[in-house]
Amino acid sequence: MIKLVVNGRARNLDVEPEMPLLWALRDHLGLPGAKYGCGAALCGACTVLVDGEPVRSCSMTVGQVKGRKVLTIEGLARPGLHRVQKAWIEHEVPQCGYCQTGMIMAAVALLEKKPRPTDQDIDEAMTNLCRCGTYARVRKAIHAAAAATPVANVTAGKP
């Protein structure tokens, strides 16, 4: 049994330690929010946060995540929509939406680190692939979510 904390809840997994986290989440924990896009850490559709860091869950094994805290899109809206999700809805970011859960998790991680990201910060952090062309709206929504963060939180280094 491998123990992880997923979305604040302790979970025991009876799987091979070399199984990528993505498949443990999707097929063994019933959390399909992180998507399979490439299986090779190229597209970012599988992005989740592990101890607050964005990772490509298709290329990180369950063994590597043992005992660590995993946050998936399913655990993000607690309580209520995360400001990134709100900005995503306000700016109508998704088209097909398949890459968007990964995009959102990457954006959440970016804003944790840089509450007021520049365009260049966004260029560097948002390496997720989108085939529909939502990139301009992703950028706009990240700026909007950043602007929605109270200045006090920014100076205190809180999300």
Binding site: P32, V93, G97
Partner: peptide, 14 residues
């Protein structure tokens, strides 16, 4: 269709 997609609800074939 956007709110479900932003929440990561299971809406796709996969």
């Amino acid at each position: 269709d956007i709110p479900d997609k932003v929440l990561g609800k299971p809406v796709f074939g996969t």
